[in-house]
Amino acid sequence: MGDIQSRLRPGASSASRAPSAVPTREEIAEAREALRVRFLVLAPRRVAALQEALRAAAEDEDARRELQRQGHQLRGTAATVGLLDLGLLGGVIERAAATAPFSPDEQARASAAVALADEYVSLACSHRAVGPIADDPRFKALVTGSQ
């Protein structure tokens, strides 16, 4: 793992393969795992920012837009590093915060999604793995109910 992370440093170069060689499946999997870990390392900070934006969003239009932006980011990046369900929660937050005024119903939906994201990120950070979000009825209600 350390080797992969060192390869992700800016300016680092891996001379183990010829410049034209296609990366192997193992190399891709290894790099993806390194990115997933990196995402999880930073995830608590991301959730804290979501919570802060959510607190202010009911009163503050800029905060609502910020919440939407952060939900959008979570949707794209979490899914990209393989955390698809967390990405779906990001989508719920993004859609809930998409329109002004931020209605009480949408606030409740965003709040539930942020809480669930927090819960799973905490679990994932302590166990280095994300549990079966898809089976959680709260997740099902949120994801199917917002699409």
Binding site: S13, S14, A15, R17, A18, P19, A31
Partner: peptide, 8 residues
């Protein structure tokens, strides 16, 4: 890094 090994 994956796509261009050996390239600085």
């Amino acid at each position: 890094e994956l796509a261009l090994p050996g390239i600085h």
